[in-house]
Computed example of a mutant assay.
Amino acid sequence: MNKAQKTEIINKLRERFSRYPHFYLADSSALTVEQVNKLRRACFEGKVEMKVAKNTLIRKALESIEASRYEGVYPALKGQTAIFFTENPKEPALIISRFRKEQGSEKPILKLAFVDSEIYEGDSQLETLTRLKSKADLIGELISLLQSPAHRVIGALQSGGQTIAGVLKTLESRSAD
């Protein structure tokens, strides 16, 4: 690979790292060609972009964006590295988990996940990543929590409206006596 080709790959990787807020790094070296194709298909269906690149090119792409932001990523750049770019922070974890179940294997091995500037290091973090909530899920939960007290007050007023009126009439009649 000549210098121009390497520069082109670095530029493409930099564009993807800049565009996607989350990415996963995994070791897919033990997978057969057929398994890699199945994994790529699952990624495509899940709207996750999967790329395999040399570690030095990945590192150069990250350093060209903001070297200090990605310092925790660099130690994971060893061996073969597949990168999963995504908008949804838990989708690659779900894809990898489903793929492992279907294949009856522990491959691919999660090296690292970079989610909202947080680093989840190691394959042991895969289950945690499958339980992450998306931004839309969190906003929905927050809205329902904020609406809950208002619904209770309105419900109490609607169901007990007659009771409140009765109490007010009783208090009015006592004050008149």
Rank of each mutant, 00 (worst) to 15 (best):
E87Q: 11
Q5Y: 02
F114P: 11
G155R: 02
F44S: 09
R100K: 04
L31M: 01
P149Q: 02
S148G: 11
L39N: 04
E106L: 05
L132Q: 13
R40Y: 12
V36W: 14
L138S: 05
S159C: 11
L171I: 10
F23D: 02
A42Q: 07
E127K: 01
S97L: 00
L112E: 03
V33D: 11
R14C: 10
K6G: 00
E63K: 08
Y74T: 03
L57G: 02
T170K: 15
K133V: 13
K38I: 11
F84N: 13
R152N: 13
E71Q: 07
L62I: 09
V33N: 12
V153T: 08
V33A: 05
V52Y: 03
S105W: 00
S117V: 14
E87N: 07
K78N: 15
E91I: 04
F84R: 13
Y74C: 10
I139S: 15
D137N: 07
I10E: 11
H151D: 13
R69T: 08
E66A: 10
H22Y: 10
K51T: 10
D137A: 04
Y70C: 08
F44M: 15
E49N: 12
Q162M: 13
S68R: 08
I164R: 14
V153F: 12
M1A: 13
I9Y: 11
E118A: 12
E121H: 06
E49F: 09
T56R: 05
S29P: 09
S148N: 12
K47C: 14
L145Q: 09
Q5A: 03
K107S: 06
R69G: 05
N11F: 15
S64V: 12
Y70E: 06
R16P: 07
E121P: 12
G155S: 05
L145W: 08
V153K: 06
S124M: 06
